[in-house]
Write a protein that binds this DNA or RNA. Structure first.
Length: 714
DNA sequence: GGAACTACGT
């Protein structure tokens, strides 16, 4: 028996990029306004106008000083002056001076609702939301503008539910929205899926005669469109007597939301006839919709078509395409597109970075992940929690828990994703204790665990062999009545037991679940399938009868699981048959995962020759998962393993991929090729240490990128 | 006013 001891490469800890890396290559950050205080002795008579002049010029400190001398001279400061000063604080983003002004406004006996409203805006726009709310709550008299300022602040933070709540409070207060506030509230309804309030607003809009404002009508339409109320949307669309391109775009979205792409496309083509030319947003809605249906090639075609009609793809187009490809298993293509986007001179934003980083996370390519992190920092895309969350996930999935933790600690306003990503990271690495520690901390924080947090902990414990704790948590979920177990909670237990080889227990949970009248979903079936690998007949019955009964359509994941089940059962020929039936019968194009599962299938049965032939015939470029499967299978066949490694493709493919590197290292060590194994080790070290763009993965392939990045960075 | 998005389970 061969000694298959797993040897890990000892590598230096990853140092995550910082904002200050390579800063000298770029232009300096914008200089902060410097406040110089000069006593104005020459002009003892300072007027309100003088204060306003100073405020408009950004000389805020001087303006406040001037204000004080007016007060000292015994004159009244006009409310307008305060308003101008507060506006200046907003324009120059100076919270400090805003606070100083607040203190002075307090001294004035009669409060002025206009000044107080401006104060609310100032705090909200300068980033002190708590103060804004405090001033707002303490105001005795609120007018439409006050409510608008507060609602505006909540919408900027995407706190839609609170916007809706404020709307109801406002109505109680006897204030009605105007044509500017209606769209904001309607937008909030659309974004939190509150159709009920949407309909209420709809009737209010009609009663108040606001339908004549296209802006307002468009927002009503958008509520129906976004919430998937196609019929209501169409009815309202037909009722509107003035339609602009925003109207048409919302209608386009309404169809796309219900996956009625053909209808959407018809509408799109019909726009010209109505004298409306589709704009970039129209294309983006369509492109995104095809991406969400997994028809990325149609989306790519539309993007080409767009370019040939002299409309340049914008950041939305690129982002939609990148995330579409990534979510449909074409992650490398997504990353190449990300590079192309940079080369096209389009600056990514937080959403783009999030999508790209998450593709790196799934591929476990630390090197690229680091690089994109560094690009984001250079471009100043750091304020987005989403970016941070995806980075935590990426570092954790690449096994760099320390780096993940560093990002975690740096995020000031952690949301539920932040906590869940870090907890999942610890769980997946087997550090359930650390995960539990965070789980407790999270309960003490402002962000409370949700059902996903609980599910993560449950699957963490059970996957690491601690059935009892997993069960305890499973029982505890519904204890305080706030969180309900969902199908995934049951799936976590089932998948865990299957992985522990406790098939009976898995089936026990499966049956218990049904007796609690929880319907299994495709993931449930998917999780239980590998457990049935040795009982292929059972598996088939399960798959066919259960899925049909539940009205579930087999998808990519189902087939992946079936192939893997055959692989475990070493049923190569039947697995081959199933693989070729995927595209014939179900209109599903096999993704890279299916190909690597096939390699697994051949590999486990020792049919490595066929595996290699299969790779040769692949219509898509094999990626690290394919090589990993092949290398894993060939560890017991030294000669084949070495042959694979000698092939130029595998070595050069993804220099940053840890899994491939570790396997290479293992194989070389096992074969006694110590020179080669140390070479791999050295490469790995270098790849983690080199993270400046000068040696980057992207850059090596295109020198031009450096220049583009410089332009975008400024 | 209209468009892109991260965490559990494969």
């Amino acid at each position: 028996m061969e000694n298959l001891m797993i040897t890990c490469i000892s590598k230096p800890p990853v140092i995550i990029p910082t904002k200050h890396d390579n800063l000298s290559e770029f232009s300096q950050p914008p200089t902060k306004l410097s406040f110089t205080y000069t006593k104005n002795t020459n002009n003892p008579k300072i007027t309100d106008n003088h204060v306003k002049y100073l405020a408009r010029s950004g000389r805020l400190a001087e303006a406040v000083a001037a204000l004080d001398s007016i007060a000292l001279s015994g004159s009244q400061v006009r409310p307008n002056t305060f308003i101008s000063l507060l506006q200046a604080c907003i324009d120059f983003g100076s919270l400090d001076l805003g606070r100083k002004l607040h203190a002075r406004i307090h001294l004035v006996k009669e409060s002025d609702p206009f000044v107080e409203t401006k104060l609310v805006s100032m705090y909200a726009k300068c980033g002190s939301f708590a103060d804004a709310r405090k001033v707002f709550d303490e105001m005795s008299q609120k007018n439409l503008y006050t409510w608008s300022a507060m609602i505006g602040a909540y919408s900027r933070l995407s706190r839609w539910k609170e916007v809706v709540e404020l709307f109801f409070l406002m109505m109680e207060d006897g204030v009605l929205p105007d044509e500017f506030l209606f769209p904001r509230i309607l937008q909030a309804c659309a974004n939190c899926g509150d159709v009920r309030t949407g309909r209420l607003l709809h009737s209010l809009v009609i009663r108040l005669g606001m339908v004549c404002y296209t802006r307002v009508s468009n927002s009503v339409l958008a509520v129906y469109a976004k919430c998937g109320k196609l019929r209501s949307a169409r009815r309202f669309f037909d009722y509107m007597n003035e339609r602009d391109r925003v109207t048409w775009n919302s209608m386009l979205l309404a169809y796309c939301q219900k996956s009625e792409n053909d209808e959407a496309y018809k509408l799109f083509n019909g726009m010209w006839g109505e004298g409306i030319e589709p704009c970039i947003v129209s294309w983006n809605i369509l492109i995104n919709s095809y991406n969400q249906l997994g028809r990325c090639d149609v989306a790519l075609g539309l993007m080409k078509e767009m370019e040939s009609s002299r409309v340049s793809p914008d950041v939305f187009t690129w982002t939609s395409m990148i995330s579409g490809l990534a979510q449909n298993g074409r992650r490398w293509q997504a990353l190449f597109l990300f590079k192309e986007m940079l080369l096209a001179g389009i600056k990514p934003n937080g959403v783009t970075i999030t999508s790209a980083v998450s593709a790196c996370a799934s591929l476990k390519v630390l090197k690229l992940g680091l690089e994109i992190h560094s690009i984001a920092l250079r471009m100043g895309i750091t304020d987005n929690v989403l970016v941070g969350n995806s980075l935590i996930d990426m570092y954790a999935k690449c096994g760099e828990l320390e780096a993940a933790r560093q990002v975690f600690d740096m995020i000031e306003e952690k949301d539920v994703y932040t906590w869940n990503s870090m907890i999942a990271g610890y769980c997946q690495a087997g550090y359930c204790g650390k995960a539990y520690e965070l789980f407790i901390k999270m309960q003490e924080s402002d962000v409370k665990p949700n059902v996903i947090t609980w599910n993560t902990m449950i699957s963490g414990y059970i996957q690491n062999g601690d059935e009892d704790r997993a069960m305890d948590l499973f029982q505890q979920i519904e204890q305080d009545g706030k969180i309900r177990r969902n199908t995934a909670s049951w799936n976590a237990l089932i998948a865990g037991y299957v992985q522990l080889g406790a098939i009976d227990k898995a089936f026990g949970v499966f049956r218990q679940m049904q007796s609690c009248s929880i319907s299994p979903n495709s993931v449930t079936i998917l999780s239980i399938l590998p457990g049935c690998a040795n009982l292929i007949a059972t598996k088939k019955t399960l798959m066919q009868s259960q899925m049909r009964k539940l009205g579930l359509k087999p998808n990519r994941g189902t087939f992946l699981s079936i192939i893997l089940a055959h692989s475990i059962a070493k049923m190569v020929d039947e697995g081959k048959q199933i693989f070729s039936s995927i595209s014939d019968n179900y209109d599903i194009i096999p993704a890279i995962e299916h190909y690597s599962a096939m390699i697994d299938l051949y590999g486990r049965s020792g049919r490595l020759g066929e595996a290699m032939e299969f790779i040769e015939d692949m219509p898509i470029e094999p990626d690290s998962s394919v090589w990993t499967s092949l290398l894993t299978a060939s560890r017991i066949h030294k000669d084949i393993a070495l042959a694979v490694l000698a092939g130029e493709r595998s070595l050069d493919l993804e220099p940053g991929n840890i899994v491939v590197n570790q396997l290479m290292y293992q194989i070389y060590s096992l074969c006694g090729k110590l020179d080669d194994s140390s070479k791999v080790r050295k490469l790995e070290k270098e790849s983690t240490l080199r993270r400046s763009l000068g040696h980057s993965w992207i850059e090596v392939r295109n020198k031009k990128l450096q220049e583009v990045l410089q332009e975008l960075g400024t």
